[in-house]
Write a protein that binds this DNA or RNA. Structure first.
Length: 863
RNA sequence: GGGCUUGUGGUCUAGCUGGUCAUGACGCCGCCCUUACACGGCGGAGAUCUCCGGUUCGAAUCCGGACAGGCCCA
C-alpha cells in the first residue's frame, strides 16, 4: 500500500505506540455474550490498588495479554476482565498515616469513605499504566470489590456458606495483631528472625526455660517428655506457679523436646502454636493474660495494665528479687509477625468466624485443574496438607465487607438478612422483621468484617456471571493466571469457595508465573534499592520492548531477573524488524495483493522455513511457552529472513526481472504471517506494520495456519544458504569485502540445483551449479562417526570399533568393509556408522577448494 | 526447620524425554559505512556445563551426596 519512501526511516516507538493506543477502541476487546464462538474466560487477578502497577504485575499481565490476544486470533470469545481487590489493612494503614489518625478517631463510615477515596484515585493511576502497556483489557468487565454490586455477592456467598454449615463462629485461638487490633489468618503471618533470651527459672522445684516469662500468669500446665528420666516421678503431680500461686498439672507429651532448655516446658494460653496443640490435646484450662491491645489483664495482676514488654521486664526483675531466676541464654528464634505492620503476633482465644477447610475436597478439585508449570501443584498439595486450623475469616477492622449478621439483644438469636436486601451493614441497617424467636426488636449488628480473601476468592464466580445464587452461567472459567506467591491464598481459597458454593473446579487451567527479581538477583525492595518500575522501562524503550522482556526473559513460571540488556535487545529487534519491513514494502507492487506464483528456489525455501516457524510458534503459544515462541520468531525474522533470504534474493529483486514477482509474492506472505505471529507479543509494532501492508488491523485477523511443504526446496535451499555462508567466510578470510567480485565459482552438489542465479548475485561471482565431480585429488583426513548409530548398535564395543575404523587405510574408509576386527573378533560394520572426512587438492591448478558436507566448491581466481 | 526451585564462557540465558563439534543475547577483538538497517553485516576469542560419586559404550542432560543461591512458607 504505502511505498517505502513514505515509511519513516526510524521506528518512533513512543509516537507509534501512543498513536495506536488512542486509535484502538475498548469495544473491540469486549466479551460478546451473544457470540457463537467458543468462550475463553480468564479469571484475572484483581490487584490491590496501591496506586503503583509494579513490574511483577506487569509480567503477570503480559502473560495474560499474550493469551487473550492469541486466543482471540484463534477464534475464541475472550473475556479479559479487570478487577480491583480493594479492602484490607494496607489502605487503612495508609489512610491512618496520611491523616495522622487511627481508625477509632473518626466515625466508621467517615473512615470508610477516606479509604474508598484513596482506593479510587489509586485505581485510576494503575489504569493509566495498564493502558500504556497496551493490554487488551475488557473494561466492560471491570469490577471493584468495595462497591455494593460486588460485595453484595461476597455477603451472599457468606450467607450461603453459613446456612450450609461451612461457616461457623467459635471461640478459638487465633493469630492476633495487637497493633492492628485484629485477628489474622495463617496466610497473613510472616516469620522474622529475632534474638531473644531464654530464661531458666525455678518453678516450684522444677527448672523451666522460657522465652516468654510475661505469660507466667497464663500458665496452665507443665509438660515433660514421657521418657525423660529426669522427670519420671513428676507426672500427674501439681505444681505451684511462682509469683501467681495457682496450681497447674504436670503432663506428659512426646512433642516435648527433651533437648531444649531443661526438658520441662510451661504451657501458656497461648505462647505459640504448640501451646494450642497441647491445650487441645490435654483439655487444659484457659487463662487469658493478654488482651487485644497487647496489655496485661486482671489475670496477670499485679501486672495488670502493663504492656507485655513491660510485664516481661517486671516479672524477670521480680524473679531475680525472689532468687528464682537462675540464668539466661541468648537464643535465635523466628517470631510470627503481622504481614502488614511487622508487629509480633499473639495467639489469643477469641470469638471469631471460621470457614471449614476440607483438605481432601480441595485437593480433589485442584487435581482436576491443569497446572502450568506442573510442579506448582506440589505447593498447593503441601499447603493443603499442612492446614491445622480452619480459615479464620473475621477481622476487627473497618474497611472491608461487613459480616451481614445481627444478634437479638433480648434472646441472642442470630438473625440474617434476606438475600434481596443485600448488601447491608449490620452496624447501620436494622433487620426488617422482629426476632423470629422472641419477637424482640432490638439488635446488635456484627461489628466484625470479612477477610479480604473472602472478597477475592469469588472472583471466578463473579466473572462467570454469578448473581449470588445457583451456578454461574459461564462457570467454570478457562484459565487462572497468577503468581506462585499466592497459591496458598488466592488459588487455595478460590478452589475451596467455588467447590462450596457451586461445586466443581473453578478453572480448567492455572498458569503460574514467577516473581520478578531485581538486576542483582534479589527480590525487588526499597531497602535494596533495586526497584525498576514499568513506567521507567516504557519511557525509555516502549511497551513492546517491555513485553518482549516479559515473554523472553525466562521460561514461563520461573522467577525472572529484570535485565536492561534484554529490554535494549528487544528494542533493537524492533528496529531490525522495521528495516526488514521497509525493505519489503519498497519492493511490493502498490495496490492489489500480488498473486504471482512462488516459483524460485530461494523463495520456496523461505516459505518452507516460514511454515516451520508458524508450527513452532503455534505449539509454543498453546503451551504458554512465550519464551520459545518469541525465540522462534526472532530467529526466523533475523537469521532466516534478514540475514539469509534477503541477502541472497535482494539482487534478484533489484534486477526486477521475471523472477522478482516470485520473491515479492513470498515476501508479502512472509511479512503478513510474521505480523500475525508478532501481534500477541508486540501489538503496537505488529499493528503499525500490518496496517501499512494491508490497511487492516492485525488484531482482527486470524492466527496464521500457513503450511507449506516442499522437500526439494528445503534441501536445495539449505544447500544454497550453507554454500553462500561458506563463501562469505572465504571472502572474509581472504580479506575481501563481501561485495567484492569473486570470479568463477563452481558448486558441485549431489543433485541438480536451480537457484535462478541467486548465489551468483549474492556473491558477486560467476557461480554455477553442477552435479559433476571436479577433477581433484581427494585426500582422506579422518573419519566422522555417527554416534547415534554406533552407540546403540555396538554398546560396549563402540570405543574399540572406532579405534579400529580409524586405523583402516583411506580407501577402505570410502568403501567400508563388511566387518572390522576388534580385539581379535570380527564385528559387522553398521550401515551409516561413519563417513570419511575428505579434503581436495588440485595439483598445479590455481583454484581454491571448499568442502562442506557432500558439496564441493571451487573458486577460480578473479583477477 | 520444611516445601519448591536453580547452579552452563565476564554477565544473563537455551538445551536437561542422554549420542561425536553446547544455543542465543550483552560485553570484548578484527574486518566491512555492500542503495532495508552501523540500533547494521561478516568473522573471531572466550565454558574442565558448581563440586564429588554412581548408572552407561557414551551425561550439561539420569541417580545419590556435598556446597552455594533464590522463592514461598513453618
Amino acid at each position: 500500500m504505502s511505498p517505502s519512501h513514505q515509511l519513516p526511516k526510524n521506528y518512533d516507538i513512543e509516537e507509534v505506540e501512543r498513536r495506536w493506543q488512542s486509535a484502538w477502541r475498548d469495544e473491540d476487546n469486549y466479551f460478546d455474550p451473544n457470540s457463537q464462538k467458543p468462550r475463553f474466560i480468564i479469571d484475572t487477578p484483581p490487584p490491590y490498588p496501591t496506586g503503583n502497577f509494579h513490574i511483577g504485575n506487569a509480567l503477570n499481565w503480559c502473560y495474560i495479554d499474550f493469551i487473550a490476544r492469541y486466543k482471540r486470533m484463534r477464534g475464541y470469545n475472550v473475556m479479559f476482565p479487570q478487577g480491583w481487590d480493594c479492602h484490607g489493612l494496607p489502605t487503612e494503614v495508609k489512610v491512618e498515616e496520611t491523616y495522622g489518625i487511627t481508625k477509632n478517631d473518626v466515625p466508621r463510615e467517615k473512615f470508610r469513605e477516606m479509604c474508598r477515596d484513596l482506593t479510587l484515585s489509586n485505581i485510576e493511576k494503575m489504569r493509566t499504566t495498564m493502558r500504556r502497556l497496551g493490554f487488551s483489557t475488557d473494561w466492560s468487565h471491570e469490577y471493584i470489590t468495595m462497591l455494593p454490586e460486588y460485595y453484595r455477592k461476597t455477603q451472599a456467598s457468606f450467607l450461603q456458606m453459613l446456612k450450609a454449615g461451612d461457616i461457623y463462629q467459635s471461640e478459638h485461638p487465633v493469630n492476633f495483631c495487637t497493633r492492628c487490633e485484629t485477628a489474622i489468618a495463617f496466610a497473613e503471618v510472616n516469620y522474622a528472625p529475632r534474638t531473644t533470651k531464654l530464661n531458666y527459672f525455678d518453678f516450684d522445684g522444677v527448672e523451666i526455660a522460657t522465652t516468654r516469662p510475661e505469660l507466667l500468669a497464663a500458665c496452665v500446665a507443665v509438660a515433660v517428655h514421657p521418657e525423660d528420666e529426669r522427670y519420671r516421678d513428676l507426672a500427674g503431680k501439681r505444681l505451684k506457679v511462682p509469683i501467681f500461686g495457682h496450681q497447674v498439672p504436670v503432663i506428659e507429651d512426646v512433642v516435648v523436646d527433651p533437648e531444649f532448655g531443661s526438658g520441662a516446658v510451661m504451657i501458656c494460653t497461648f505462647g505459640d502454636k504448640t501451646d494450642v496443640y497441647w491445650w487441645k490435646q490435654h483439655g487444659l484450662d484457659l487463662r487469658k493474660a493478654i488482651d487485644r491491645q497487647g496489655v496485661m489483664t486482671a489475670t496477670a495482676a499485679p501486672y495488670e495494665g502493663m504492656t507485655s514488654e513491660d510485664c516481661r521486664e517486671a516479672i524477670l526483675h521480680d524473679m531475680q528479687e525472689a532468687g528464682i531466676l537462675k540464668r539466661q541464654e541468648e537464643l535465635e528464634q523466628r517470631v510470627g509477625t503481622c504481614w502488614r505492620c511487622k508487629t509480633p503476633i499473639e495467639i489469643l482465644s477469641e470469638r471469631q468466624w471460621f470457614v471449614k477447610v476440607h483438605q481432601d475436597q480441595i485437593l480433589d478439585q485442584a487435581k482436576k485443574i491443569s497446572w502450568t508449570p506442573e510442579h506448582m501443584f506440589a505447593r498447593m498439595e503441601n499447603w493443603a496438607n499442612s492446614m491445622e486450623w480452619d480459615w479464620c475469616i473475621s477481622r476487627q477492622r473497618i474497611f472491608a465487607t461487613p459480616i451481614p449478621v445481627w444478634f437479638c439483644s433480648t434472646c441472642g438469636e442470630m438473625v440474617l438478612p434476606a438475600e434481596e436486601d443485600l448488601p447491608i451493614d449490620p452496624t447501620v441497617d436494622k433487620p426488617k422483621t422482629p426476632c423470629p424467636k422472641c419477637g424482640g426488636s432490638e439488635f446488635n449488628g456484627e461489628k466484625d468484617v470479612l477477610d479480604t480473601w473472602m472478597d477475592s476468592s469469588i472472583s471466578v464466580l463473579h466473572v462467570t456471571g454469578w448473581d449470588g445464587t445457583g451456578k454461574p452461567p459461564l462457570f467454570p472459567a478457562q484459565i487462572r493466571p497468577q503468581g506462585h506467591d499466592i497459591i496458598r491464598t488466592w488459588a487455595f481459597y478460590t478452589i475451596l469457595r467455588a467447590n462450596a458454593l457451586v461445586g466443581g473446579h473453578p478453572w480448567d487451567e492455572i498458569l503460574v508465573n514467577g516473581m520478578v527479581l531485581g538486576e542483582d538477583g534479589f527480590k525487588m525492595s526499597k531497602s535494596r534499592n533495586n526497584i525498576i518500575s514499568p513506567e521507567e522501562i516504557v519511557g525509555q524503550y516502549g511497551a513492546d520492548a517491555l513485553r518482549q522482556w516479559g515473554a523472553g526473559g525466562a521460561a514461563t513460571g520461573s522467577d525472572i531477573m529484570f535485565n536492561w540488556n534484554d529490554v535494549v535487545a528487544a528494542s533493537r529487534f524492533q528496529t531490525k524488524l522495521w528495516n526488514i519491513f521497509r525493505f519489503v514494502m519498497g519492493h511490493l507492487d502498490s495496490g492489489t495483493e500480488n498473486p504471482a506464483p512462488v516459483t524460485e528456489l530461494t523463495d520456496r525455501w523461505l516459505l518452507v522455513r516460514l511454515s516451520d516457524t508458524v508450527a513452532e510458534v503455534t505449539a509454543a503459544m498453546e503451551g504458554y511457552q512465550f519464551d520459545r515462541a518469541l525465540r522462534a520468531i526472532r530467529e526466523f525474522a533475523w537469521n532466516t529472513l534478514a540475514d539469509d533470504y534477503i541477502e541472497i534474493a535482494k539482487g534478484r529483486l533489484y534486477a526486477e526481472d521475471e523472477s522478482s514477482a516470485s520473491a515479492c509474492s513470498a515476501l508479502r506472505t512472509t511479512v503478513d504471517v510474521l505480523c500475525r505471529l508478532l501481534a500477541p507479543i508486540i501489538p503496537h509494532f505488529a499493528e503499525e506494520s500490518y496496517h501499512n501492508l494491508t490497511g487492516r488491523s492485525v488484531h482482527k485477523e486470524a492466527w496464521p495456519d500457513f503450511a507449506y511443504a516442499d522437500d526439494e526446496a528445503r534441501r536445495h535451499g539449505d544447500l544454497l544458504v550453507k554454500t553462500v555462508a561458506e563463501l562469505r567466510r572465504y571472502k572474509h578470510d581472504k580479506g575481501m569485502a563481501l561485495n567484492a567480485p569473486l570470479g568463477h565459482v563452481m558448486i558441485y552438489a549431489p543433485e541438480p540445483v536451480d537457484d535462478a542465479g541467486d548465489a551468483g548475485r549474492a556473491l558477486a561471482a560467476d557461480a554455477r551449479w553442477s552435479t559433476g565431480t571436479p577433477r581433484l585429488e581427494e585426500v582422506t583426513t579422518g573419519v566422522n562417526f555417527n554416534m547415534a548409530v554406533i552407540g546403540p548398535a555396538l554398546r560396549k564395543q563402540a570405543r574399540g570399533f572406532m579405534q579400529a575404523v580409524e586405523a583402516l587405510p583411506p580407501d577402505l574408509l570410502k568403501n567400508p568393509p563388511a566387518t572390522v576386527t576388534v580385539d581379535g573378533e570380527d564385528i559387522p560394520v553398521p550401515p551409516d556408522s561413519f563417513t570419511p572426512k575428505v579434503a581436495y587438492q588440485v595439483a598445479g591448478e590455481e583454484v581454491d577448494v571448499l568442502t562442506l558436507g557432500d558439496v564441493i566448491v571451487t573458486i577460480g581466481h578473479s583477477s
